[in-house]
C-alpha cells in the first residue's frame, strides 16, 4: 500500500517533470521528446510496476519477528535487508501505534526502543491483538530484567 502511494507520487512527479522539460523549449531537449512529454511518466511507470507488484510479497516473505529467550529478533527489508537483535533487558520503551490505514485493516506497528537508534526496531503490520499482547509482555519482561539499559 505504501508502495502504491510512492508509485503514484513517482509517476505523477515524472509526469510533471516531463511536462516541464517538454514545455521549456530548451535547446538540448531532443525534438521527439518535446513532442511527446508523456513518454517520461510512462517509462517510469513501466520500470517501477514490477517493483510495485513485487514489493509487498517480498516484504511479506522477508519480514519476520520472534521473541525467544528474552531477545527480540526482527527481520525487515525489500532491497536492503536488515536483521535486528534487541535483548529485552536493554529495551527502554515499547510503543504500539496505528496509522489510519492500519486501523482500517486492523493492524498495528510495534516500536521497540533502546538507548541507541541502531538497537531499536520497528515491527510493522502486526495484528492489533498480537501487537498489544506483545507490547505488554515485552514491557513487563523488560521491567523484570531491567538493568542499566544503556
Amino acid at each position: 500500500m505504501e508502495a502504491l502511494i510512492a508509485f503514484v507520487l513517482l509517476v505523477g512527479g515524472s509526469f510533471l517533470a516531463g511536462r516541464w522539460v517538454g514545455g521549456s523549449g530548451w535547446p538540448w531537449v531532443p525534438d521527439w521528446f518535446a513532442a511527446r512529454p508523456w513518454l517520461l511518466p510512462v517509462a517510469v511507470g513501466v520500470l517501477t510496476t514490477p517493483f510495485l507488484l513485487a514489493e509487498p510479497f517480498v516484504r511479506y516473505a522477508v519480514h519476520r519477528w520472534e521473541l525467544s529467550g528474552d531477545v527480540v529478533y526482527a527481520r525487515t527489508g525489500f532491497l536492503t535487508r536488515e536483521w535486528v537483535f534487541v535483548p529485552v533487558s536493554r529495551i527502554q520503551t515499547v510503543d504500539k501505534a496505528q496509522g489510519w490505514l492500519e486501523r482500517a485493516l486492523g493492524l498495528a506497528t510495534l516500536e521497540i526502543r533502546t538507548a541507541s537508534h541502531a538497537g531499536s526496531s520497528t515491527i510493522k503490520g502486526l495484528d492489533y491483538a498480537v501487537a498489544a499482547g506483545l507490547a505488554e509482555r515485552l514491557a513487563n519482561r523488560a521491567e523484570q530484567l531491567r538493568d542499566d539499559a544503556t
Partner: peptide
C-alpha cells in the same frame, strides 16, 4: 544494546 545487520542489494 543490540545488533543490527544490514545488507543492501
Amino acid at each position: 544494546v543490540g545488533w543490527r545487520v544490514r545488507q543492501t542489494w
